[in-house]
Simulated assay, not measured.
Amino acid sequence: MFELSHPWVLLLLPLPLIWRRIVPPYRQRQDALRVPFFDQIAEAAGLTVQDGAAIVAHKRRALIGGGLMWALLVLALAGPVRLGPPQEITKATRDVILAIDISGSMDTRDFPGEDGKPVQRLAAVQEVVEAFLADRTGDRVALIVFGTRAYVQAPLTEDLDTVRALLAQTEVGMAGPHTALGDSIGLAINTFEASEIEERLLILLSDGNDTASRMSPVNAAEIARDKGVRMFAIGVGDPEASGEDRLDMALLNNLAQRTGGEAYFAADADALDSIYDEIDALNPQEIETLSWRPQQNLAHWPLMAAMAIGLILLMSLWVRDHGRARA
């Protein structure tokens, strides 16, 4: 498909005709022999004497060639372009960080699977989170894993296949045996600082209480709220357990509410899956699509054609003058 970037330039096409009609012919003063009795000769010949000039008649090929050259030059100025097929780019409008607990307690095999048999807590979480990532079109996602320390496993990216691959390679105990909730929230805040997107969502998933943080989880949640981060906390542990393995749902609920989010308890894989659906319902996904068509500038073609016509006209004049000189 072809298109003109400046179609209004075509209004210049009739300019030579208008110029020729409005502007008088060019007159040039030349030396001549003065005849004192010129009027008498003209009267004897029956001619009427008047002021005037001889207008040189242009050759037809010169008029046609000049008209074509002008039309091609105007066409080049109009900016002809060839349009390629439409292209669409989906731009991220929301940043999502998944902060996943991989402390020693996540190795416990007490999480009811889809078939009812107990499976490892981290394995069940990985399966559901992978399905969650498959529907993240239009989001940038980062992965943080935490135990005794918190680490960025994947920065904010639209390459969700890489995030899923890194999640699948994550194993229990890689970040230490304890649980550092506050540090994971603080690391998520720092990760969001590199983004200019206003909508920021933190999904925190843990099966224990905070035992190793250098930053208080409550203080971290307050800072997250001030930074515009909305947190959703998901507990997958055992609230009836004791010690470090006990799931502190009261703390998770406090942290989430401080940022305007929600806290959930996932009793099994189906409940965990439905929690992600509920989070999506509370935070509708907005996708910004940019559409454009690649353009190829074609202005050089009419310019080259105009130059070719001009060379042909010059060569024809040279051949004509050279022939007359030899004659």
Rank of each mutant, 00 (worst) to 15 (best):
L4K: 02
S5C: 04
S5N: 12
L12E: 08
I18M: 14
P24I: 05
Y26R: 15
R27I: 12
R34K: 09
R34F: 11
R34I: 12
Q40R: 13
Q40E: 15
G46M: 14
T48E: 14
T48G: 10
D51L: 09
A54D: 12
K59F: 13
K59W: 15
M69A: 14
M69R: 13
L72Y: 00
L73Y: 02
R82P: 03
Q87F: 12
E88Y: 10
R94P: 00
A99V: 01
I100Y: 05
T108V: 11
G113C: 04
E114N: 15
L122W: 00
A124I: 00
V125F: 00
T137W: 09
R140M: 02
T148G: 11
R149D: 13
Q153V: 02
A154D: 10
L156M: 07
D159P: 05
A175Q: 02
A175C: 00
L181K: 03
I185Q: 09
N190Q: 10
R200P: 03
R200E: 05
R200F: 04
L201A: 06
R214Y: 03
P217A: 01
A221H: 05
D226Y: 08
D226R: 11
V229E: 06
V229S: 05
R230D: 05
P239T: 09
P239F: 08
D245W: 02
D248K: 06
N253E: 14
L255D: 03
R258H: 06
A267N: 14
Y276W: 02
E278M: 09
D280S: 06
L282M: 11
E286W: 04
I287H: 13
L290P: 07
A299P: 06
L311Q: 09
I312W: 12
L313V: 03
L317W: 14
H322P: 07
